[in-house]
Design a protein around this nucleic acid. Structure first.
Lengths: 148, 148
DNA sequence: GAATAAGTGGGGAAATGTGGGAAAAGGGTT
DNA sequence: AACCCTTTTCCCACATTTCCCCACTTATTC
């Protein structure tokens, strides 16, 4: 179960050092196999491969001539990249994904339960501002009963 | 299983160098026989021949006087071209398909599970903008249960 | 304060991508 | 029918990038 946000730096080669506390949890279920892909909200997703595969299967089962499923598939499957940490616990973020999410040097790795999200510094700040801006309208359908 | 997006350059002769990580997967099931054709969304499709043939059969079995199947058939079967990689792992994109998908120098090769899509740089960017424009309405019918 | 773990940077070998050239095939003209 | 010109295909060689590994600096813990 991944949680917590960490600010990290991409090095000149686009590598991201995963915080040591998350490494085992990422490697254990996956034998090291990780999958990175694009999220419609302009951030990236990082899954251990076993968690990603059922999602891919669902998306690939949708009709591919239908515009919306095709778009979703192009994004999620089209950008998916197999990935492994190097010996120093770093992940290489492929250039096309870096550009998609507008990642510069400073990025955020945000735990989301089954997976991580990766945000550009600017994107992550905007996301928080958007949350404040929503105000009372934040509670989504299906979560009306949520009390904190 | 093909996934991942790669930006490639067509050379002066219209050849496209397939990324090495995909070559084996393309050649293995097909003994090198590949099929390229046109997709209604104005991109190209690239299949290993064995994956293409059942699709062609389905299209050819559709009633030929019915306007929509006729159109689909003209596009998919009409544009289909057999193709093989050269010794350097490059694929020649036939001129008529290059024109159909408006391919210039920079193109994208996008993994879509059983096959690849090939996009012009401009087309691929428009595709992404269309996804952002959809916003919350992105989830297509049948995939409402998708959780990332 | 020392030792160990974590994060950062860089260098080099091997695989990959790119371009060009020569040979062969096809088509049109005399 | 033969020849020449154009187009295509195949192959070789070079430049580039990528990946992997090693070494150093910084932080943390005992």
């Amino acid at each position: 179960m991944f949680q917590g946000a960490a600010q990290l730096n991409l090095d000149a080669k686009g590598r991201m050092a995963i915080p040591a506390r998350h490494r085992d949890a990422l490697l254990a279920p996956a034998e090291g196999r990780l999958v990175m892909t694009a999220h419609p909200h302009r951030c990236l997703l990082l899954y251990p491969a076993p968690a990603w595969e059922p999602i891919r299967a669902k998306i690939l089962a949708a009709p591919s001539l239908e515009t919306q499923s095709a778009m979703l598939r192009r994004l999620l499957v089209g950008f998916a990249a197999d990935s492994e940490m190097d010996a120093a616990g770093r992940l290489l973020v492929p250039p096309e994904l870096r550009r998609y999410a507008a990642l510069e040097k400073e990025v955020w790795l945000v735990g989301q339960g089954s997976h991580f999200e990766i945000w550009s510094d600017a994107g992550w700040r905007e996301q928080q501002e958007a949350i404040f801006a929503l105000g009372d309208k934040l509670l989504p359908p299906g979560l009306e009963s949520l009390t904190l």
